[in-house]
Design a protein around this nucleic acid. Structure first.
Lengths: 234, 234
DNA sequence: TCAAAAGTGTTAGCGGTACACCCATGG
DNA sequence: CCATGGGTGTACCGCTAACACTTTTGA
């Protein structure tokens, strides 16, 4: 009975990406200047439409790649936004994804091409449609994830210092954390490797670089060592 | 530039509902016998297609109402499933929702009409398409929600006993809990009202009925009394 | 009177949190 | 030599988890 399928509405399925980055000044979001009507030249999340021959995840990857030139980055589906009037032109459903990328590693030319800019998370411009809701949902999901899994490292370069990691967590949770307790907690997870190198850019003493040992983490998880990453106080 | 929209693919958007119920024998899922091809007469989640003039939430409400005759029940969006070949007939994206309903309150005639049946959560028949994944996702979401918010009460009648509530939590977490610790924890939330009535069906002594005080709960939340419902050990 | 489920308190150990001083170095 | 940020240890408190007996009453 193919006809059961045929009598229903076909709808535009969009994808929108909330792209997080981080530097020592805090969390950032990558936004673009929309280059078509309506809302042309207003700030928007990077988005696109789902093609018939690609999965939702593939489409999200493609859209992120189009803007940043990055592949294999952390990308997680967030929520489906489907109010009838969310797009004034035509009925669309949008599946929002959020991405965590290393803010230093993206293709500057592409960013320019799309009129993209990094905005501090607390100084966002007005966004089109329901994009502000999407951003809120993404912030909240990021907080949840970061307290249960080591996603924070996706936002940092390969080598990072404890003070940097702490600044990141403070930015995600919008709170101050105690230096000693933070270090203890993170190190007790036993998935960081201390290097001998020091970061001397931001202090005279210098801070040791650490790396995240992904294999060690996976091994723990597979061992059933549940809850390696304990929730961090809000 | 309307044409920017026009050049893209329109796709069938489906919705599927994972419907949870509960009785003293455990968690149940409401499944239907699919009545059209393909996979006709195989077990399936209750589903339907999104109409152009309704939001995703409205569509999910409608689909749930169609099967159960219930309105205003707990219904939360779960995840968007969008593999290219998830439906062999035509490309569809399905947004899964899960519902928590009181297993005693649904329209038996409707259930019969759709060939629906309650299955114990651990004795599900083979399900079509990617529905097994959807069920797994729903179980995991339910566990998360139940440890952070008082959603468990959605699955119980207005009046319920402590032993019943405990059985429910044990079913959700698939674990045994200590009676004394459980009661203390639940009562410390201070949102249950003890009644003078006793449930005498299941024991000679009888167990007191309690009711959930929704207003008290909301008041607490609005007061910023965060984390009223402490996570329950896995 | 006894079987079966309901109800009730205490304690020990662990983990979270608060807290203050020394270290290394470049300017 | 001093200013700046990096690095370290301890003590208390509260919460979690472990644990066993009494109560009620229908059969």
């Amino acid at each position: 009975m193919q006809s059961y399928y045929e009598e229903h509405d076909r709808i535009l399925v969009a994808l929108d990406c909330i792209i997080f980055g981080f530097d020592r000044n805090g969390l950032k979001l990558l936004l673009i200047k929309r280059d078509f009507e309506p809302e042309k030249s207003n700030w928007s999340l990077m988005g696109g439409f789902l093609k018939r021959d690609e999965s939702l995840d593939e489409a999200a990857d493609r859209i992120l790649y189009t803007l940043t030139g990055l592949e294999d980055v952390y990308l997680e589906q967030l929520y489906g936004f489907g109010e009838v009037d969310r797009d004034p032109v035509e009925r669309t459903v949008s599946i929002a994804y959020y991405a965590l990328i290393n803010i230093r590693e993206h293709d500057r030319e592409l960013l320019e091409k799309y009129g993209a800019r990094w905005f501090p998370i607390n100084e966002l411009p007005d966004l089109i449609f329901d994009h502000p809701q999407m951003v809120e949902a993404a912030k909240s999901r990021l907080r949840y994830r970061a307290s249960h899994e080591p996603v924070g490292f996706e936002l940092l370069p390969e080598k990072f210092t404890m003070p940097e990691l702490q600044i990141l967590y403070e930015a995600i949770y919008e709170t101050k954390l105690d230096k000693r307790n933070f270090r203890r907690r993170i190190l007790s997870m036993d998935v960081l490797e201390k290097t001998d190198e020091k970061q001397k850019k931001y202090s005279k003493k210098g801070a040791y670089f650490y790396t995240f040992n992904q294999e060690k983490y996976r091994a723990k998880i597979n061992n059933g060592d549940s809850l390696v990453f304990k929730p961090i106080k809000l």
